[in-house]
């Protein structure tokens, strides 16, 4: 680990000002990600700005929006009764992530900013276009069981690991920083030829909250995560669904996929396939099919295509009340 300076900030403005002094500065929230990255030689900030004293905590339920502070802990949000009750997809996604210990320490802002678990990215000794632009992507043609089937490029096929971000995509959330608002669908960048650019955040920009339209709290929603072991593991495939139902007919649907793309993947074609329809077996199948439109599987991850089809149909059916 390289030597670094440490500072504590007590307000958002303070945090941004302090971080502005060093272009390599990093904010520290729960530290469950940043410290690992530093230990593994994947991040080397010259300045660590501890933002835990910034008043960006708690959850408020307004008329228009539900606002979750960037420093709220995953566990705290997940067990908030109104979240469990009105935003089940959010609570379920949070509880499906990490372990109880990590969730107690990890913040919402830090969760959104976690880096890919691609094992080539996570090993400083390997080439990786995200880490070292131009060094190559060994996942393409290598061990890619874990990797993207959607949204990848020939420079990068990483997968975004956050469960929370998938749920927030299905809830049409907005990321609020100290000086602007970014819809979650515009927050993450696809790799294209610049895989090292991962989010819309500017250096030194602080996330202070995420906001969810309060209307979404009336919708039915749910999350399902498929993984190699029962707990404490990232998704092979996950599906978040939020449905605005009119009787048995879908008025609006938001469907987001995790584990399949470099960002939480909004499955627009699947949403279109169910909008205005009843969730009959044919419609469910069509939605699953639409969800993998354009999928480009690699040697070891073709199974994800079928897994997405099945899981999308399953979650839609459950949330839609079929089961």
């Amino acid at each position: 680990m390289r030597p670094f300076a440490y500072a504590q900030a007590t307000s958002a403005a303070d945090a941004v000002a302090v971080a502005g002094r060093d272009p390599s500065a990093a904010f520290l929230a729960g530290g469950t990600e940043l410290l690992n990255l530093m230990r593994d030689g994947l991040a080397a900030p010259g300045l660590v700005v501890d933002v835990n004293a910034v008043p960006a905590k708690g959850i408020s339920f307004g008329e228009e929006v539900i606002r979750i502070g960037a420093l709220a802990r995953m566990a705290e949000v997940a067990r908030e009764p109104r979240v469990r009750d009105r935003l089940p997809v959010l609570s379920q996604a949070l509880l499906a992530g990490a372990s109880a210990q990590v969730r107690n320490a990890a913040s919402v802002g830090g969760n959104l900013m976690q880096r890919t678990r691609c094992w080539y990215f996570r090993d400083a000794a390997m080439p990786c276009n995200t880490r070292v632009p131009g060094s190559g992507c060994p996942a393409i043609g290598g061990e890619n069981r874990w990797h993207a089937i959607l949204g990848g490029s020939d420079a990068c096929i990483k997968v975004h690991p956050s469960d929370l971000a998938v749920a927030l995509t299905a809830l049409d959330a907005t990321v609020v920083t100290h000086d602007r608002r970014i819809p979650i669908t515009e927050f993450y960048r696809l790799p294209g030829s610049t895989p090292h650019v991962e989010t819309a955040l500017r250096p030194g920009e602080l996330i202070v909250a995420v906001e969810i339209p309060a209307a979404g709290a009336g919708f039915r929603s749910g999350y399902r995560k498929v993984r190699d072991r029962a707990s404490f593991e990232f998704a092979l495939v996950s599906v978040a669904v939020s449905l605005d139902l009119d009787g048995g007919t879908v008025r609006q649907a938001r469907i987001a996929l995790g584990g399949v793309a470099p960002r939480p993947w909004r499955a627009l074609a699947a949403e279109n396939a169910v909008r205005g329809r009843r969730l009959t077996p044919d419609v469910l199948r069509a939605a699953g099919e639409a969800a993998v439109e354009g999928a480009a599987p690699r040697e070891h991850n073709a199974f994800k295509v079928e897994l997405v089809r099945r899981t999308v149909a399953d979650v839609l059916e459950r949330v839609g009340g079929g089961r």
């Binding site: 390997m126 060994p138 043609g141 290598g142 061990e143 069981r145 029962a230 593991e233």
Partner: peptide
């Protein structure tokens, strides 16, 4: 899992090499 071209183990930590957890 071992990368065939690089000869490097890609699951070289307990996040990549999955031992059963309580829930399993």
């Amino acid at each position: 899992l071992v990368d065939r071209r690089l000869g490097r183990i890609v699951t070289a930590n307990l996040a990549g090499y999955l031992v059963p957890v309580e829930a399993d």
